[in-house]
């Protein structure tokens, strides 16, 4: 069985759920909005395996029946409708959510993605070091509370952007020479500055062995917020060079991410920079613009994991870091054509 955990209305969750339904997959949704009415019981079984069951208003689900798990949880207050830590609803929901996260970390099932693996994205400099170790070019980076160091960095690199150090979503902004307000705040909170890399943004979605790349054409510093600066965004499917595709696939595998959204930029000189690896990508933004079958690729991955587990293949083998696939693979059974 495939278990989906999250709050309906979340576009990627809904898209994967619909893609699984189209395939007739044995999938069940655990609705996080009902966490306060859900109890998750975990215990240690034979050979240290964590077993137990989930009980929600629809019934009881033994965890050992779950062979693949897709996670898209939202913050507990958002799901349960209250942020009052003293309320019984909040406490029950928080306990249920925490137990699900624990189980997702230790479950024998294939998990897309384990919370432990996703947490690397909560520290951008930490993740950047992992990316650099994979051989992608990364922008020169400075994290600092020292205004003099920022000015020195700007002199060295010319155009510089700044963004949050943590996984808290922030708008990537170009640092203006006159931006004294931004610099004043630096002294009390470490801030990340990066050399501006000119070029074209490419979002690569990895789902197991499948690679779906999208080129984003926009004049905005952060295309996600292009409309705020009056800039347009155009997206088209892209065929990646073999080595770049294989690098993305292998890097996601090495980071223990079965699904990832990798942010690349191709410079005018043809160099590929990598900025970030998103472990829970909001892929529907790209799918809606290009028609690329990303949800179908994730559904196919979950089905493969489910079938492998049924034949006794351990889930943690994960997607193979195979070589040679540079062409995005057509998702079997999906009506959309392959990316070209």
């Amino acid at each position: 069985m495939i278990l989906l955990w999250g709050a309906p209305g979340d576009a990627p969750l809904d898209a994967v759920r619909e893609a699984l339904a189209r395939r007739g997959a044995p999938a069940v949704l655990l609705d996080q909005r009902r966490s306060a009415q859900t109890s998750v019981t975990l215990r240690i079984g034979a050979q240290g395996r964590v077993c137990g069951e989930i009980e929600d208003p629809d019934g009881t689900l033994p965890l050992d029946q779950v062979r693949a798990l897709y996670l898209r949880p939202v913050e507990t207050p958002k799901a349960c409708g209250t942020d009052d830590p003293a309320s019984a609803v909040y406490q029950r929901a928080a306990a249920s959510d925490a137990a699900m996260v624990t189980w997702a970390d230790v479950a024998d099932a294939a998990v897309v993605n384990r919370p432990e693996a996703m947490a690397a994205n909560n520290s951008k400099p930490y993740q950047l070091a992992l990316i650099a170790a994979w051989g992608f070019a990364v922008p020169a980076t400075l994290v600092t509370t020292d205004v003099t160091a920022v000015r020195r960095f700007c002199r060295r690199h010319g155009s510089v952007i700044y963004k949050s150090v943590s996984g808290v979503r922030s708008i990537v902004s170009r640092l203006a020479a006159t931006d004294e307000d931004a610099l004043r705040n630096v002294a009390n909170c470490p801030t990340q500055f990066q050399q501006y890399i000119p070029g074209t943004d490419v979002r690569v979605h990895v789902a197991g062995d499948a690679i779906l790349a999208t080129e984003i054409r926009s004049a905005a510093d952060d295309y996600r917020y292009a409309s705020r600066s009056g800039a347009d965004v155009a997206m088209v499917p892209l065929l990646l060079p073999d080595d770049v595709a294989e690098g993305c696939r292998a890097m996601a595998h090495d980071m223990k991410l079965r699904v990832a959204g990798i942010d690349l930029r191709r410079t005018p000189d043809g160099e590929w920079y990598c900025f970030e690896v998103n472990p829970s990508p909001g892929f529907t933004f790209f799918e809606a613009a290009t028609g690329q079958p990303i949800a179908a690729a994730i559904a196919e991955l979950l089905l493969q994991c489910e079938r492998k587990a049924a034949f006794g293949v351990m889930a943690d083998e994960g997607p193979a870091a195979s070589s040679g696939f540079s062409v995005p693979r057509r998702v079997a059974g999906d009506s959309l054509s392959a990316v070209s």
Binding site: P125, A129, A132, A140, L142, T145, A187, N188, C189
Partner: peptide, 12 residues
């Protein structure tokens, strides 16, 4: 200390 001026970290 973490909120004080003086930290300089180049991950490279």
């Amino acid at each position: 200390d973490l909120c004080s001026p003086g930290w300089i970290f180049d991950p490279g």
